[in-house]
């Protein structure tokens, strides 16, 4: 398998109550393309921090992150976010004054990646693939259920034609049935579309369905066999 993301000697700390709190310590790990990863760990272990670093939302105190062999600092975090990754959040993070299809098109307009010209139809098709029919696609997002909104968020993450999709507790607000549906979508994305999915979760159901479970503990990542 090809390596898509590599973390080398990542250190991250912050000052808490006058004391420096080390979250990540010389963390190194390599993610392969086309696989569905789940990162597990106790609360406060730094899962979300790790996600924000690999998503280019924050920078480490030291260490390097390579995307397809290139240092993301050299690519530029803004460009990296725009062209290389997508993030799916627990709260879905959709724009409330846009319809579902417009939310999906939003991601297309911000990337430099190649997007087909007929963007609206591409967006409709993406949504339809994840169970959002046209009549719902034209609704404002706050008129959709939680599960539907998360599907819209996933459709949006695919719209920008990126290789890496991160998700932070994507099923945290969903019922078990919907949770399973969403996870199967992630699996489909990894296996059928060759996307690399890295999901931070507490959920055993989610982690059980992933290709590779990774544990974040004491500031380091270790594979769970």
């Amino acid at each position: 398998m090809t390596e898509i993301l590599r973390l080398e000697n990542i250190n991250y700390s912050y000052i808490d109550g006058g004391y420096e709190r080390q979250i990540l310590k010389d963390l190194s790990y390599s993610f392969e393309a086309g696989k569905f990863y789940t990162i597990l760990g106790p609360s406060g272990s730094g899962k979300t921090t790790l996600l924000s670093l690999v998503a280019g939302l924050d920078t480490a105190k030291s260490g390097k992150i390579y995307f397809n062999g290139k240092d993301i600092d050299e690519i530029g975090l803004h460009k990296f976010r725009r062209n290389a990754i997508s993030i799916v959040f627990q709260q879905f993070n959709l724009i409330s004054y846009l319809t579902a299809v417009e939310n999906v098109m939003l991601a297309m307009s911000e990337t430099d990646n190649e997007i087909p010209k007929d963007r609206k139809n591409v967006a409709y098709n993406l949504l339809e693939r994840f169970g959002i029919v046209r009549s719902k696609a034209d609704r404002m997002v706050n008129q959709l259920s939680g599960g539907e909104q998360q599907r819209v968020a996933i459709a949006r993450s695919l719209a920008s034609n990126v290789d890496l999709i991160f998700a932070d507790e994507p099923t945290g607000n969903l019922d078990t049935a919907t949770e399973k549906e969403i996870i199967s979508i992630f699996k489909e994305l990894a296996h059928d579309f060759g996307k690399t999915i890295i999901v931070v979760t507490h959920s055993d159901t989610v982690s059980a369905m992933s290709d590779q479970r990774v544990l974040l503990k004491d500031g380091k990542l270790t594979k769970i066999k």
Partner: peptide
């Protein structure tokens, strides 16, 4: 703020 955060996270300048 939330909307701005989303826009920035998807790469809007």
């Amino acid at each position: 703020e939330y909307e701005i955060g989303v826009l920035l996270s998807i790469g809007a300048s």
